[in-house]
Amino acid sequence: MSHTHDHEHAPPRPDLDDTMTYYRVMEEAVRSLLIEKGIVTADEVRREVENMDARTPANGAQVVARAWVDPDFREQLVANPKQAIGEIGHDIGPMHLVVLENTPAVHNVVVCTLCSCYPRWLLGRPPDWYKSRAYRSRVVREPRAVLREFGTEIADDREVRVHDSTADMRYLVLPLRPDGTDGLSEAELAALVGRDSMIGVTEVAPPLRA
């Protein structure tokens, strides 16, 4: 891997959907051959695409909001994530999930330095930056500087705990419930929870006051 680049991103790419690049041609050729050989069907591929499209950070936000309002659920979520998440209607498939609870003493943040492991069975496909060389290289070595770039300042006396998703486990951060949310419904709480807070690069901000 080249170490001479001082920034990571390629020039902006146009939407490739109407351009037949070499690798797009390869995808179509491979897929059509696999279908002809009876290894996959076109329907299965379509369903798989749709199923993954349907997994979004909103699913994770529901889980977080429930954990904030229901201490029993929270306990079960940490002890047995698959079962707890299943009870609110989300099947996390074959994923071995670890739920990382943020506390006043510990802030958790997740990365995969070896590839791009991500709790995709709950949150969908990872954001581009999560897969970037810059994030993967830096967050293990200078997590506080990376968090600052995301606008997150962690107090000096609070531990920052990085989790490198190097093998078979996947990680979901359970952020702290923000102050000023006592009167909110579970759905209103879920609406506050964004993807980045469940990766741990941000905290959940309190609702804006009118």
Partner: peptide
């Protein structure tokens, strides 16, 4: 498979953070 916890200050010379910071990996 284990999860192992390391002190950040042990891994990176001149680590710029709290002495309490850790990293956990499988």
């Amino acid at each position: 498979l284990y999860r192992v916890r390391f002190r950040q200050a042990d891994l990176w010379p001149g680590y710029d953070g709290s002495a309490a910071d850790h990293i956990e990996i499988e």
